[in-house]
Simulated scan of single mutants.
Amino acid sequence: MSENTAVSKADARDDAALQPPVDVIEDAAGITLYADLAGVPKDKLHLHVEGDALTIEGEIVLEMPEGMENSHAEVGLARYRRVFTLSKELDASKVGAEFKNGVLKLSIPKAEHAQPRKVQVTVT
């Protein structure tokens, strides 16, 4: 089953978004993801976890002082959006988030079954 949808140029522009650069660090406990979201205030930052998809969205707010006009802009899109597929080894219900100085830090622990564990050896 497929759906035929026509997207106008204006609609495509509304759906367009910058992909924030990210760094992902993995260790035995899980992963830590850092996303650079320059210009996004905390109230315009949205995180969603649905199924195995993690979505980061943010709206850039650049206020122009009254009476001034923008003569040059290098950021043509006013929002960020990036979607990640989470491994079944990660526990999406325990995502932790911190946002400081335009950098989002997400901590996603490994699920219980994926955590390293020590096996006790008995001598007989």
Rank of each mutant, 00 (worst) to 15 (best):
M1A: 14
S2D: 14
E3H: 15
N4Q: 15
V7Q: 15
V7C: 10
S8W: 14
S8C: 15
K9L: 11
K9P: 10
D11Y: 13
R13W: 13
D14K: 12
D14S: 08
D15W: 14
A17L: 08
L18Y: 14
Q19R: 13
Q19Y: 13
P20W: 10
V22G: 03
D27F: 09
D27M: 06
A29S: 03
T32K: 04
D36K: 02
L37C: 11
A38T: 09
G39L: 02
V40K: 08
V40P: 08
P41K: 05
P41H: 03
L45D: 08
L45T: 07
L45R: 11
H46F: 09
H46M: 04
L47A: 02
D52Q: 09
A53T: 05
A53W: 01
L54H: 05
T55A: 07
E57R: 13
G58V: 08
G58M: 07
G58A: 08
I60D: 00
I60R: 07
V61C: 00
E63N: 10
E63F: 02
M64P: 06
P65H: 05
E66P: 03
G67L: 02
E69H: 03
A73N: 07
V75N: 06
G76F: 05
G76L: 06
A78E: 09
R79M: 03
R79E: 02
R79I: 03
Y80Q: 14
R81W: 05
R81V: 01
R82Q: 15
R82E: 11
V83G: 08
V83L: 14
V83H: 13
L86Y: 06
L86D: 09
S87R: 10
S87I: 02
S87C: 00
E89K: 06
S93V: 07
S93L: 09
V95K: 12
V95N: 05
A97L: 11
N101F: 06
G102L: 01
G102P: 12
V103Y: 08
V103E: 13
L104G: 12
K105D: 05
S107Y: 08
I108Q: 09
K110G: 04
K110Q: 12
K110S: 07
A111S: 04
E112V: 00
A114C: 02
P116F: 11
P116E: 06
K118M: 09
V119F: 14
V121A: 14
V121L: 13
V123S: 02
T124Y: 04
T124V: 01
